[in-house]
Design a protein around this nucleic acid. Structure first.
Lengths: 244, 244
DNA sequence: AATGGTTTAAGGTCATACCAAAATACCAGG
DNA sequence: CCTGGTATTTTGGTATGACCTTAAACCATT
């Protein structure tokens, strides 16, 4: 008897079938961001399954970042507008568990952030430059108040990436900064002179971009990132931060 | 009754708390890949919650690619070994739904794959070169048989990325190729002359790397990627591929 | 020893009930 | 009429307890 007659009755899990169906609706844009799915109880009768099963499907969709669930009247599952933060989070969890070393991630970051400098020099608008300069000013003030954190630095780099006017690249850089902030908390409180130097390098970079000076911009960014990279490498080579 | 004096806005969802706890165990490596979590019923009593809640937590962990669930005796939730494929999948689902254009993704890919050329030229071992040459030979044969696919090309680029000996970068490139193959299926069947040209460029690149000629390698890869990029752009600018 | 049924551990699903939160409806007091 | 508090309703969150399906291990028959 030819076995091809029997199609392997896959998907032994009903909840997964529901997930697939809703995914399909999303892909075909019959469900658009902001739309609200029927309530759990309605979905039950619609799919002819119990509420538990529907809820499991919703959990999966939620964990995939495809829907957001709100409670209360007029609550329910709402299709989310996909953004980089979710990708970054998912990437962060896996990064934090994968055998990747901080040095590797840092090097990858270096490749990306250096590689986009030409695009930035070419495409940065006046508004971009204004934003970046304003950021530098703010950071300088924060630095004086002793409130300069890695997070501010990360914001700067993200804003720089946005100057490429390429959402994929922006997403990529954001994804890198999320995990790095999470895993490299040891560098959270930036030593004053370090922050001062980094802040100055940020400003130099902005001005190089403003002058459309690719070589200067690349050199500045390179020095800036290399310094960060070497610090990361040092701290990890010495068996971890003193903070244990 | 004290009852958790400082219980911040902690998500109000018990299943999420369980997820966080298990995540923590993973992060602290108290749970390693291959380990089996207690059965659902055991987890119930352990956490003092119902089975529904435990199951939702497991669904989330499963959707996040952190555990794999097997049914039957000796079944249960097993910690998975994290790999790039999962990152790529998660990225792919979001990419396919995000407002990213193919052109943006392609440009990002271009930045990364060009940016790593210096690392490759510097670090490629003899084994790397042997592998790449073997790949080129195989692809040439496949081309003659008319079996040259985008997937083979993607394999080549992934192998090239592996020459950086940086797992993060390899993962990054893989993640790009996964979604691209999924979403840009229009270029699935490569026209013979296209494949021939691409294949030749691959070989040229390998030899440039073998000669440790950074400029030649960069130029070759740049031309190769630019050609692909422009093709993607064209096909999307013209309102979709003719193949439908 | 090989085959085939039986037990058993585990996840998958169902049904019902109740709780908690959020939006709305409603009503009393100014 | 407006304001503000209360009740109601909608909807997700959780708890129980039962039953089914799967898959491995165990056992009995041939």
């Amino acid at each position: 008897m030819p076995e091809e007659l029997f199609k392997t009755v896959s998907s032994s899990r009903v909840s997964q079938v529901i997930v697939d169906q809703i995914r399909l609706l999303l892909k075909e844009e019959r469900l658009k961001p902001g739309d609200r799915l029927p309530s759990e109880r309605e979905l039950c009768v619609h799919f002819g399954v119990s509420r538990v099963t529907v809820r499991e499907a919703l959990r999966i969709l939620e964990a995939s970042g495809l829907v957001e669930i709100r409670v209360g009247a007029r609550g329910g599952a709402f299709v989310t507008t996909p953004d980089a933060r979710q990708v970054g989070e998912g990437l962060a969890t896996l990064l934090s568990l994968s055998p990747l070393t901080a040095a590797e991630v840092t090097e990858a970051r270096l490749v990306v952030e250096l590689g986009i400098v030409p695009l930035i020099v070419e495409r940065a608008t006046q508004e971009d430059l204004d934003d970046l300069r304003a950021m530098c000013d703010e950071h300088a003030e924060a630095l004086e108040r002793g409130e300069y954190t890695m997070e501010l630095s990360a914001d700067f780099h993200t804003r720089v990436a946005a100057c490429t006017h390429n959402a994929a690249i922006k997403m990529l850089v954001e994804s890198f900064h999320g995990p790095l902030l999470m895993s490299l908390r040891q560098a959270q409180t930036v030593e004053p002179q370090m922050g001062l130097l980094g802040s100055k390098e940020h400003r130099d970079f902005v001005e190089a971009v403003a002058a459309r000076d690719l070589d200067a911009a690349t050199a500045t960014m390179n020095a800036h990132l290399q310094r960060t990279a070497s610090r990361v490498k040092d701290e990890h080579a010495e068996g971890g931060p003193a903070t244990g």
